[in-house]
Design a protein around this nucleic acid. Sequence first.
DNA 1: CGAGGCATGTAACGCGTTACATGATTCC
DNA 2: GGAATCATGTAACGCGTTACATGCCTCG
Lengths: 182, 182
Amino acid sequence: MARSSQTQMAVLGGLSIEPMTAYALREAIRDVLGHFWSESFGQIYPTLQVLEEEGHVRRREGPRARSSVFEITESGTARLIELLTEPIRDTPPRDGLLLRLFFGRTLGRARCRGLLQAARDRATQNLRGYEELHAQLSTAEGDTPDWPFIEVTIRAGIHHARATVAWADESLTALSTEEPPS
Amino acid sequence: MARSSQTQMAVLGGLSIEPMTAYALREAIRDVLGHFWSESFGQIYPTLQVLEEEGHVRRREGPRARSSVFEITESGTARLIELLTEPIRDTPPRDGLLLRLFFGRTLGRARCRGLLQAARDRATQNLRGYEELHAQLSTAEGDTPDWPFIEVTIRAGIHHARATVAWADESLTALSTEEPPS
DNA sequence: CGAGGCATGTAACGCGTTACATGATTCC
DNA sequence: GGAATCATGTAACGCGTTACATGCCTCG
């Protein structure tokens, strides 16, 4: 009974879609899972070694000398389902933007508006990113069984980005006056 | 030039609104900042000691023996502004729900729908929580200069909760068929 | 033949949580 | 007088990031 690992979930999950090198796995996580997940090299390599020892992944010769392509084994798939079924461990929230806005009286209205505008810009940019990602992946993966699930995660990003834009607009209006109304 | 600390920001910010004991500070952070921030005892106490040594907070006799009420000093306010002005350090995202849904093919549609339904329920519950919080604080703090900013953070929660509900509904529909369409 | 990207790993460090440990006060 | 809550702190541990260290391969 190995202890639970979120990194194992992401690694096994990635390999369940397609065998890859550790390097490619990291890129895939960054580019595709990037808006809701992250893993660093320092986690991925040791995790792959552990998974190999436990027989959950198999190492094959890679495209170059000293490079390896990893593929998931049957026991790895079982382990993945086990991990996926575990209760979600929610990380304590830490939103630096909201924390700053909360203390907006001290920070000042002008700076708050700056932060809100920046957040709005980022959100619209993200929105475009999601649309690109959706277009790109729907042609590449559109007819694989993974696609409907991938799409769900992208649409989560879209919904949240839109909500952020609406909230930022509303808040910019609310904080528009330089001095609070008497 | 002390190193940046997110905990210092939350602690000084809390005390900038009202002097409190460490215990009350933790409760305030949990109850009011809870939906976008968290601090644990293990952080709050050492941070208060550091801030006291640096002269950013002052310790006064508390309501009981061996208890202290902390209040922010002038240099503490300056330090708070300094911290508030620092660029936002965004924590790498880690959304366990989206990670599981992404690997939904392996997890199975039924379980995905379960997760989505649970997320939807939680979001509607949060929504109610925000409304309560809004009502409660708007009477308690409604005419303080902090209120407009507090309201902005609550409305962020409301917007995101609504977005989550809409996304969950849409996704439940998308994943409603037991077998993928041929 | 050099720059940049592919590829693999290790080690140190910091942040933050959890669990532990203790005691005062209030309310029933 | 006992339970719950207020109150203060410490210590160990784990997770994850960052920085470091190394080398191959391809393209221009």
